[in-house]
């Protein structure tokens, strides 16, 4: 403990000395006052933040407490939430890929609605940004999912007999109002939008999720120079990463699939190539397993690789029917 303190003081002193070295001309009494102040503030900081050796750095211990309080956005499918450790995590970039019609856009819309579940119900009460590159965003569908979500919430409120006032606040139109929709028509616009989002989110602080549906479409069409494509994609991914950390929001990127020749046969793999596969924190692959839709955690630094079934119903993403049967049987 003592050692720690002294090291902190030196750290503070060092800074002052460095300042003195440049241009600061103060009498010694004042200097010691300043030093005292510096050491005090650093001690005060020490309770919340550990001694930073340089700006922006953080110790693993400090990160631990932060990680423990990472808010999650539920997917409305309990099995899926379970393998994801509660849902889509804020401050992380998650990539979701799968064959056409597997339900990528559905998950995207569901998340855009679910991020708005009020805090009283265990949600985030946030807003969503939906970036549509493919033109597959259907307001009719958002309305269906929003209505179902409100129904579920009022059922929950009824069971718990509290938070009656929330009922009034949650109206399908409010949910639609809180989804900011951007239609992107070229990769240039996509890059421009990512650059602009920093400003946009600063002005709309309650945005808690950004959904990019899909990251692939324009980057798949308009490039001859693949190396340049990779550079632009990785720059874009880094910007998304920065957004997610800076504003504590979840970024979900939807990706398409392509075929690749692996081990003597053609197999499915997510698009945009191998170097792209390093970009996202988590990677989830959606696939068909016989008659059921499954999600598989292909890559994640914190979650173990697992798969869970889900289904796309008229009310949105839900547990698959067979798994609910299984639970009933037990």
């Amino acid at each position: 403990m003592e050692k720690k303190e002294s090291s902190r003081q030196i750290c503070g002193k060092d800074r002052i000395i460095a300042l003195e070295g440049t241009d600061l001309d103060v009498p010694e009494s004042k200097a010691s006052e300043i030093l005292k102040y510096v050491s005090q503030t650093s001690r005060m900081d020490g309770s919340s933040r550990s001694p930073a050796t340089f700006d922006g750095a953080q110790t693993a211990w400090a990160m631990l407490s932060e990680e423990n309080f990472l808010p999650c956005i539920t997917t409305s499918c309990l099995d899926l939430d379970n393998i994801l450790g509660g849902g889509m995590r804020c401050r992380e970039v998650t990539e979701i890929g799968g064959v056409p019609g597997i339900g990528k856009t559905q998950i995207g819309i569901q998340l855009a609605v679910n991020v708005q579940i009020p805090i009283e119900y265990g949600g985030l009460g946030g807003q969503a940004i939906y970036i549509d590159t493919e033109g597959s965003f259907m307001v009719e569908r958002v309305l269906q999912i929003a209505e179902a979500c409100i129904e579920d919430l009022s059922e929950y409120a009824h069971l718990h007999k509290d938070a009656q006032d929330c009922k009034v606040k949650m109206h399908p139109n409010n949910i639609l109002q809180n989804i900011f929709y951007f239609r992107v028509c070229s990769y240039t616009e996509q890059i421009a939008l990512v650059n602009y989002l920093d400003k946009f989110v600063t002005e709309h602080k309650s945005v808690k999720i950004i959904i990019l549906d899909s990251v692939t479409f324009h980057f798949r069409q308009e490039f001859d120079d693949m190396a340049r494509r990779t550079r632009l994609l990785s720059e874009m991914a880094l910007k998304f990463m920065r957004l997610s950390k800076k504003f504590g929001l979840a970024v979900v990127m939807l990706n398409q699939v392509t075929t690749k020749f692996i081990d003597g046969s053609f197999q499915l793999t997510l698009a945009l190539g191998d170097s792209w596969s390093h970009m996202c924190t988590n990677r989830i692959i959606l696939y068909w397993n016989n008659n059921e839709r499954y999600a598989f955690i292909d890559k994640s630094p914190s979650l173990k690789s697992a798969s869970a079934s889900y289904s796309v119903t008229s009310r949105g993403i839900r547990n698959s029917s067979s798994s609910s049967k299984r639970i009933k049987m037990m």
Partner: peptide, 23 residues
Amino acid sequence: AIAHISEVVCPPCQTALYLMEHR
């Protein structure tokens, strides 16, 4: 400079509610 250009080029924001009512 890029931030400035991006802001000019980037597509406008619409809320889902606006989209629906407009339709």
